[in-house]
Amino acid sequence: MKSRWQLNWRLLSMVMALALVLTGCGRENLSALVPKGPVAEQQLFLMVLTSAIMIGVFLIVMIIFAYVLIRYRQRPGQTGIPKQVEGNHKLEILWTVIPFLLLIVMAVPTVAIAFDLAKEYNNKEAVQVNVTAHQFWWEFEYPDLGVRTAQELVIPAGKKVQFHVTSADVIHAFWIPALGGKIDTNPGLTNKIWLEAKEPGTYYGKCAELCGASHALMDFKVQALEASAFDDWAKKMKAATEAPAATATGTAAQGREIFQKSCIGCHAIGSEGGKLGPNLTNFGERKLVAGIKPNDAQHLAEWLKNPQEVKPGNTMPNLNLQDDQVSALVEYLHSLKVTQ
C-alpha cells in the first residue's frame, strides 16, 4: 500500500515541480520547489497537501467574505436596526469540527514523514559525513574514507548520505533546499540528518541561521557523482591526504614556499597543516573561491589580497601580499588537483 501511496505523491510532486519550473519558480538545484531527492520530495508533498487544504479553506472564507461585504453593505437611506443575532450552535459546532477533521488529514502524513526523516543510517547503509560549520565556511569529513575537504561536498548519487553536523563557533544551519530541509549546527552538540540526491549534478547549499556579518555569503556546493566516480574520488582524495604532492614547478614552486611560510598554520593540504581554515587538498578542482566567487585567477587574487572585502568578518587575515606573491600563490593553489 505504501508503494502506491509513494508513487502517487511522487507523481503529484513531479507535476507540481514541472509546473513551477515552467512558471519560473526558482532556479533548479536550488529551489525547494524542484526536489532532487526523496527527502525534498516528501517535504514538497507535505507542502502541497497543506497548501491545498489551506487554499481550500481560504477560498471558502473569501466567498463568504465577498458575499457578506457586497450583500450587506449599508444602502443609502437604509434605516432601522438589523436583527441582533446571539449565535448559532449548529454553525459553531460545524466550524469547530470541520477544521479538526482537516487537521487530522494533515497530522497523519506529518507524523509518518517526520519519523521517516528522523531515521538514522549506519555506515553499511549510507555514506557517513561529519559536517562542521565555521564562520563562514563548511568543513566535510568522511571518517570511514579517511577524507577531509571543505566548501564542496561530494556525495554519491542514488545513495543515502548520513550527516553528523556540529559547529565550531556559533549556530549555523545546514541547508541544501533541492535535496531536503535544514538542520541547525549547534556548537557542543551533534545533530543527525540524512539526504539523498537521485541524480548526479551540482546542488546549492546555504547557511540558514544568522551567524555573523557574512551569514549571507556562507554558501557551499554539493557535487553528486555516479557511485563509481565517487569511489574513485574518495580513493584519490585519500591518497592525496596521505601523501600530498610535494613537488611544484616554476611560479607554483614559489607559491608553495609562501604557502608553507604564511598559510599552513591555518590551512592544511592533505594531512599537513592547521585546521582553523578550510582544507585545500583539492582546491584547484573547486568551482568557487570562498564559496561564492568563481575560482579563476582574478577572483582568487582578489580574495588573497583582501579577504575582508570579499567576505566581511571572516577570520582570514590580510597578509599584505605583493602582486607577484599573489600570482605565485594563485598558480600554486590552482595546481592542487587530485583526480587528474
Binding site: 517535504q43 514538497l44 507535505l46 507542502m47 489551506m54 494533515m106 514523514i113 517526520a114 544551519a173 540558514a208
Partner: peptide
C-alpha cells in the same frame, strides 16, 4: 501559513 509551518518535515524547508 502558520498551519503549514506547524508541519515539522515541511518546516525543515520553510524554517529560517
Amino acid at each position: 501559513t502558520g498551519v503549514m509551518l506547524a508541519v515539522p518535515p515541511a518546516d525543515y524547508q520553510y524554517h529560517d
